[in-house]
Measured scan of single mutants.
Amino acid sequence: MKVIFLKDVKGKGKKGEIKNVADGYANNFLFKQGLAIEATPANLKALE
């Protein structure tokens, strides 16, 4: 799953980066902790 990092995550990505991560990692950790959002077309456009 492609995500946009909202904060730096050690060993995974930095704020503003768009990366592929495992679905479970994104859903169970990144999204719940507010560290990333899904890289949907709307979210990508808002990032610009």
Rank of each mutant, 00 (worst) to 15 (best):
Y25H: 03
T40K: 05
A46D: 11
K12H: 15
K7S: 11
K15E: 07
T40I: 06
V3A: 01
G24E: 15
G11I: 01
E38F: 05
A39E: 02
K10M: 12
K10Y: 14
F5E: 06
K45I: 12
K12G: 13
Q33L: 15
L47G: 05
P41L: 12
K7H: 12
Y25D: 04
A46L: 15
K10C: 11
N43W: 02
I4Q: 03
K19C: 07
F5V: 00
I4H: 02
G34D: 06
V21E: 02
K10T: 10
K15P: 05
L44E: 04
K45L: 14
V3E: 00
V3K: 00
A36K: 00
V9E: 02
V21F: 07
N20T: 15
G11L: 05
V3S: 00
E38G: 04
I4K: 00
I18K: 04
Y25G: 05
F5H: 00
K10F: 14
K2R: 14
P41Y: 10
A36S: 01
L47Q: 09
F31H: 01
I18D: 01
L35P: 00
T40E: 04
V3N: 00
L6W: 00
L30P: 02
G16W: 09
L6K: 03
G34K: 10
Q33S: 09
Q33P: 01
I37T: 07
K19G: 08
L35S: 03
K2Q: 13
K15S: 07
K2I: 13
A39D: 01
G16F: 09
G13E: 04
I4F: 09
N28V: 08
V9Q: 02
A42F: 09
A22V: 08
V3I: 08
L47V: 09
A22M: 10
K7P: 00
E17T: 06
D8Q: 03
L47A: 09
A26E: 07
D23R: 15
G13V: 03
F5I: 02
F5P: 01
V21N: 01
I37L: 05
E48N: 13
K15N: 03
A36P: 00
N43C: 05
K12F: 14
N27C: 11
F29P: 03
G13Q: 02
A39T: 02
A42H: 10
G16Y: 10
K12A: 15
K2P: 10
P41D: 14
I18G: 02
L35N: 03
A39N: 01
P41N: 09
G24C: 11
L30K: 01
A42K: 09
G11A: 05
A22P: 15
G24Y: 11
P41Q: 11
K14E: 07
V3G: 00
F31P: 04
F31E: 03
L6R: 01
I18H: 03
M1N: 03
E48R: 07
E48F: 13
D8T: 11
A46I: 12
Q33F: 15
G34T: 04
L47R: 05
E38K: 11
E38V: 08
I4S: 00
F31G: 02
K15Y: 07
P41W: 10
A26T: 04
D8M: 04
K15T: 08
V21D: 02
L44M: 09
I37A: 07
N43I: 10
F5S: 00
K2F: 14
V9H: 04
L30R: 00
A26S: 03
E17L: 01
A26C: 03
Y25K: 04
D23C: 10
E48A: 13
K7G: 07
Y25C: 04
F31V: 08
I4A: 01
V3P: 00
K15A: 12
N20D: 13
A42W: 06
K15I: 12
G16C: 07
D8S: 10
L35Q: 03
N43A: 11
A26Q: 05
K19M: 12
N27R: 15
G24V: 13
K32N: 10
A26H: 02
L35W: 12
E48I: 13
K12N: 10
N43M: 08
A42M: 09
G16D: 07
Q33I: 09
K7L: 11
A26P: 04
L6V: 07
G11V: 01
F29W: 11
I4C: 00
K2W: 15
Y25E: 09
K15M: 10
T40N: 08
Q33D: 08
L6A: 00
P41G: 09
A42D: 13
L6Y: 01
F5L: 08
L47S: 07
I37Q: 06
E48Y: 13
L44A: 06
K45P: 05
G24D: 15
E17W: 05
L44S: 05
G16S: 03
K14I: 12
L6M: 08
V9S: 02
K10W: 13
F31W: 01
A22T: 13
N20M: 14
L47C: 07
F31T: 05
E48G: 12
K2L: 15
G13Y: 13
N28D: 14
G11R: 05
F5T: 00
A39M: 06
I37Y: 03
G34V: 04
G13L: 02
A36G: 04
